[in-house]
Design a protein around this nucleic acid. Sequence first.
DNA 1: AATGGGACCTGCGCGC
DNA 2: TGCGCGCAGGTCCCAT
Length: 266
Amino acid sequence: MPELPEVETIKRDLEKIVLGKKIIKVCVYNPAVIREPSPKVFKKSLQGLVIKKILRRGKLLILELSNGAALTIHLKMTGQLVYPGGLKNSRVAFYFSGGKILDFNDQRLFGELRLVDEWGKLKFIQGLGPEPFDLSCSDFMGMFSKKKTKIKPLLMDQSFISGIGNIYAAEILFRSKIDPRRSAQSLTEKEKEALCKETKEVLSSAIVHGGSSIDDYVRLSGKPGGYLKFHRVYGREAKPCFVCKGPINKITQGGRGTYFCPKCQK
DNA sequence: AATGGGACCTGCGCGC
DNA sequence: TGCGCGCAGGTCCCAT
């Protein structure tokens, strides 16, 4: 679910709400989501720590704590952070001084919570490619030259560029007018430039609108994000293309659904 | 190096 | 109405 814009939205929401707050208690209702250390140690170690800084790397949320450790949260497909929480179905509840609760919900239990001494040493972090907003367009364009991979799976490859998932890959390629089945190295300079521009444009616009609520994603407040109405292809199989009125196609690539307009995307 | 499949889980919508 | 099946935004791991 949550890709870069959704995680960035939650990060900014969290900064307004929990930054500087002290965790007084942690309740673990489903230990499966605590990946390290053991749920017992996780729970006990967090007690009394203050949230000092909140960061995002790719789709990972990082909460730096007053003892130098970090709580990392990956929402995967169905994870949610909700404040104020206290819901019945939450997997983990963080109690703050003042009595308010931050809930971690996750229907499918793919989500991962970790408490680590140095988040920079996480394997996940070490495998991440550059942040889209850190790249100049000339850097960005140079990255595609020798890649034989199909452009859409490549955009979703977190070691290539971090933060783009299935929804935004489809939206970016539509706006760049590039067929998702093309090989990366086949792109012309003009197409690469469009791809760079649209990547930044789509992601930043999605952040401005609080992300795309499809299925489970909600903002920290529990309210949906507003970017869904700007989607052009994702989830629109057989519906008319907003540009040419022809039907949007759906194919499978790398085991995931790919939506595109065969007329507009060459 | 690139690609494909399955695994991790639960719930939803669809067709029969 | 009820049941079984396929499918879902992410990532990791293994095989070819």
